[in-house]
């Protein structure tokens, strides 16, 4: 153990649902690298591009026509706040990728506004990720990533790309926006993989 901060007691009360180094919040803080893009659902499109260059596209109506799921998950931001039992509605990536022919191991999520983040494809499948368009029973606010964001709640929340517009699948792992700016390539909150090398 390192030094003791004399007179510090702390707030505690996190419990077992909090990964190491996280604190509980009941608010919903915002973290974005630039201005919030305002994308109309009329103009929204989601594209999956495979490693062979084949493209699969959904517009808003096509997304709405897919079976949706109600999702209740804890979310963990690398800036140390966690929010428990958040509720979302969205389409599972299992559904979106069901007919996509790929042998790729990696995905790069791309967003309106230019943001990118890399996630292994396995982490997007088997009920682990969604394209979410409702939060807490309401359409997703632009500042929280609306009209639709990627939701990958088992990784730090920067992986849950706001304003998502597509996935590019690849055999090789490239790094996304924060991952090239010093953050961890994978970002498991339970292993506290915040920064590159953790």
């Amino acid at each position: 153990m390192g030094i003791v901060s004399s007179g510090f007691t702390g707030r505690r009360g996190g419990g077992k649902d909090l990964p190491p180094g996280q604190y509980l919040t009941h608010e919903f803080p915002v973290l974005s690298a630039g201005p919030t893009p305002h994308i109309l659902t009329d103009h929204w499109e989601f594209t999956v591009t495979t490693e062979s260059g084949e493209k699969y596209k959904w517009d808003w109506a096509a997304l709405m026509a897919l079976p949706s799921e109600e999702i209740t998950k804890d979310i963990h931001c690398v800036t140390r706040w966690s929010k428990l039992q958040t509720t979302w509605k969205g389409v599972s990536l299992d559904t979106l990728l069901a007919d996509v022919e790929t042998g790729a191991d990696f995905a790069m999520a791309h967003s309106y506004g230019g943001y990118t983040t890399n996630v292994p494809l396995d982490d997007l499948l088997d009920g682990q990720s969604w394209i979410a368009y409702e939060y807490d029973g309401e359409p997703l606010d632009p500042e929280h990533g609306g009209p639709a964001r990627l939701l990958v709640p088992h990784l730090y929340f920067w992986k849950s790309a706001k304003w998502v517009r597509g996935l590019v699948l690849s055999d090789t792992e490239d790094l996304g926006f924060w991952e090239t700016a010093g953050y961890h390539e994978y970002g498991d909150p339970w292993k506290e993989q915040r920064y590159a090398g953790d």
């Binding site: 390192g2 901060s5 707030r11 505690r12 604190y23 800036t79 140390r80």
Partner: peptide, 14 residues
């Protein structure tokens, strides 16, 4: 920054 209480409890912020 990381603070540590006497019993080892820790809290960090940026």
């Amino acid at each position: 920054v990381r603070l540590t209480a006497e019993d080892g409890y820790r809290a960090s912020r940026s």
